[in-house]
Structure formats: structure tokens, C-alpha cells
Write a protein that binds this DNA or RNA. Structure first.
Lengths: 146, 146
DNA sequence: CCAATGTCAGCATAACTGACATCA
DNA sequence: CTGATGTCAGTTGTGCTGACATTG
């Protein structure tokens, strides 16, 4: 351990913070009886409207490709947690709808989101969490590309 | 776009924030002449002491496995940006030392960290960035596992 | 004998791009 | 014709675990 400390950069810190939530989520889902659910599935859970959503909409919300969402949605279909229904208003589209079991797991996931945030508040203080949330909820605009 | 909005959860937001930095970093490195450098390499760059560091130390700082660091270090060796020297005080250890070219790319990366944070401050305000940093730099403790 | 270090091999996950058929 | 949607296929990036030899 003979080494100089190092400058911390925000990106690194954000990644570690994300992993803190990720591990808590996956652990919570596992102990709640859904050992095969991962963070990627929560990308659907967190954004799925109560009446279902389209794959493209989920992709836009989560900021990933249509194909990535397609992948995890079909894993959820395999698990029997969501179903794909035809959209009456647009026959080229489908709607991702949770099954009863899916609704139960979604409820668990949403509760875990809240509990993890509360646990964090008890560790670093509610003010810090509120400020973190406020800063991160702002519109950061597109990534710098030049 | 017929869809109800959705509750945002902190984990998701943190991931998106991380990606904002990640994309900015990779884009900046590319336009600065290092198109093959990615975020994983910055894990080394951000933590490498001026006199070099050991792989195990880098792993501990970044919070990833020794093997993961081993991987990216050897990619950097291939690119000629770092070298592995024997540690005189411990013959089972090696020291990761930047080459002159490596020092140049590290300088660029460190500068990009600062510039990205400044750009963010100009977009969401310096106070928000300071509060974000303060909250995220605290010790969050181990992830919740129960 | 035990712990730390580096290394090799294999694997899992989560995203990506490209290409394509269908439909509005 | 254009654009959006879903899908199939292939690939990449990033990290993990397990196993092992070497060193302290």
C-alpha cells in the first residue's frame, strides 16, 4: 500500500454509486424470490406503464437501443412475467404487458427502489440524497462530443 | 408516444449520469488522437500514481477485481502506454509505470475529467455539481444485501 | 502453512451495429 | 417513399469466478 492517493473523477464516482444501487436491487430481488432478475430487467420494470408500453418507448426512456430492450423483454416473456400483445391502433407495434406474476415482481422492484433510497438517506443523510437527486434529475443535455 | 411517464429511480439516473461522462470521455480521447482508449482504461489512468502503482492497488481503488485490472493494463501495454516493472521491494509484485506517450494520454484524460465537470456546471449550475459531488463522495457503506 | 500477487482460461452480462420484413 | 417498429444475427466491452505458480 505504498502509493499516492488519486484524484477522483465524477464519472468513476457515479459508476460506483450506480453499482451500490445495482447490487442492492439484485440482492433484494433474489431474497424476495426472483433470483434470475437482474438490473437489465429493472430497466423494463422501472419504465413500464400500468397499461403496458411499447418496446421502442421503453428503449427511449432508458436511453438504450430497441434491440437491447427487445432482448430483456423476451427474457421476461420466458419467465412468464410479461406478455406481448398486439397494439390495436398500430399493427406494426406490440405492447409489453405484465402478467399477474410480473405485477408482483414489479411491485417488489419499485419497493426496493424506495427502500434503497431510504437506506442511503439513513447513511449519508436525507439532505444529501435530496441534493443528489435534484442534481441528477436535471437535464444534462447531450454528452459532450467535440 | 401514448404512454404514462414513469417513476424515476436513483440507480437508473446514476447510470445515465455515468454514461454522460463516459461518452464525453471516450469522445474526447478519440478527438485527441487516442481512438482506442475506452472507459475501462480510464480506470487505470484516474488511479495511477505518478511513480506507478501495483495492479492490486489499482483494483482496490477502482473497486474491481485484480483480473479485470490485469486485462486493461495489458491492453495498455500493447498500446505502448504503460510498462510493467519489477518491484524491488517485493519480487512477487510488479509496478505499472506510464511511458512518455502514456503520460501524455493520461494528461489528456485528467484534463477531460475537469473539462467535463466544468461543462456540466455550465449546464446545470456549479452549485448542483458541487452538491452532487459532495453527496457521492461520502462513504455509502457496503451495498444492502439482505 | 498462510496470505498476497500476478496470470491464464473460461464465462456471463449488457450493451452495440447491421440487416431485414412489416406497417403507418 | 419515408419513417417507425419489431426482430434476427453477430459482435464487442467489461467484468466476473476458478485455478494456479510465485513470493513473502
Amino acid at each position: 500500500m505504498v502509493d499516492t492517493p488519486a484524484a477522483v473523477n465524477l464519472g468513476q464516482l457515479l459508476l460506483q454509486a450506480f453499482r451500490w444501487f445495482d447490487e442492492g436491487l439484485v440482492a433484494g430481488l433474489r431474497t424476495a424470490g426472483w433470483p434470475q432478475l437482474t438490473r437489465a430487467h429493472s430497466l423494463v420494470f422501472a419504465n413500464l406503464g400500468p397499461r403496458g408500453s411499447r418496446i421502442s418507448d421503453l428503449a427511449r426512456r432508458a436511453g438504450v437501443s430497441r434491440q437491447a430492450v427487445h432482448q430483456v423483454v423476451h427474457e421476461l416473456v420466458e419467465m412468464g412475467l410479461v406478455e406481448l400483445h398486439d397494439d390495436e391502433r398500430n399493427r406494426s407495434a406490440k405492447v409489453v404487458v405484465p402478467t399477474p406474476a410480473g405485477r408482483r415482481s414489479i411491485a417488489v422492484a419499485l419497493r426496493l427502489f424506495v427502500e434503497l433510497e431510504a437506506e442511503l438517506a439513513s447513511r449519508i443523510g436525507p439532505v444529501q440524497v435530496a441534493q443528489l437527486r435534484r442534481a441528477i434529475e436535471r437535464d444534462w443535455g447531450p454528452p459532450v462530443t467535440r
